[in-house]
């Protein structure tokens, strides 16, 4: 039975011999937290799930970016990260321009953390929001359960980037947006799924009522 608890930098996680997961460090045989987050020792791995921090590109991450420069071989993409990303022309089936919203995958990250992107697609219309990237896993949920819930209840198409950007398309996008901001605020609590379900149902009901 794994239990998670809130920690701050320097807090002791465990004195046992464990494998080191993300956001912890070892000193004098003891494992400590590097960040503010939820600590967990599960299946022999000690880790901390961070609650704050900017997005640092990682291989395999889906990301949503904005074209900020059009170059001859491809595009410079803003990921709301201190690190840059580049999408080569051949990774996009059509031509993009300044300000276009792109969803892509991080193919590779170099020694100084700049990202090379692949499999890009332009997202047209819709609405783009940015939340704390560390709360994205909660918006997706275990086995995409939260994301499916949001899409099913509101009918909105939602694309989520690991870099904290979320693209929404649909009539009830504003309700989905409010729900996502709520998840962002309460990501570290339990019983969230039920509260979000209740919130959306109430909002959607109110909306149908007003469309009489």
């Amino acid at each position: 039975m794994s239990e998670r608890w809130l920690v701050v930098p320097g807090d002791l996680i465990t004195e046992e011999k464990v494998k080191l997961g993300p956001n912890v460090y070892v000193e004098g045989g003891k494992v400590y937290s590097k960040v503010v987050g939820l600590a967990e020792v599960k299946e022999g791995v000690a880790r901390v799930i961070p609650l704050e921090g900017r997005y640092i590109p990682r291989e395999g991450d889906p990301v949503i970016g904005i074209v900020v420069d059009v170059k001859i071989p491809g595009y410079d993409i803003d990921l709301n990260s201190p690190y840059k990303a580049f999408l080569p022309n051949e990774e996009l089936s059509e031509e993009a321009s300044y300000g276009d919203v792109i969803i892509a995958t991080v193919k590779r990250v170099d020694a100084v953390k700049n990202a090379l992107l692949e499999k890009g697609n332009i997202l047209r219309g819709g609405e783009l929001i940015t939340i704390n990237p560390k709360k994205i896993p909660r918006v997706i949920g275990k086995k995409r359960s939260m994301l499916n819930l949001l899409q099913t209840l509101t009918g909105v198409t939602i694309m989520v980037g690991a870099n904290g950007r979320i693209w929404l398309y649909g009539k009830n996008a504003d309700i989905a947006k409010e729900a996502i901001f709520k998840i962002e605020q309460e990501a570290h609590t339990s019983g969230l799924t039920d509260r979000i379900t209740k919130f959306i149902e109430e909002e959607m009901h109110g909306r149908r009522g007003n469309q009489a």
């Binding site: 904005i66 074209v67 900020v68 420069d69 803003d78 709301n80 300044y98 300000g99 919203v101 609405e127 783009l128």
Partner: peptide, 11 residues
């Protein structure tokens, strides 16, 4: 980035 503001300004 200026172009990111462009995107929001459009909205």
């Amino acid at each position: 980035n200026e172009f990111v503001w462009e995107f929001t300004s459009d909205k």
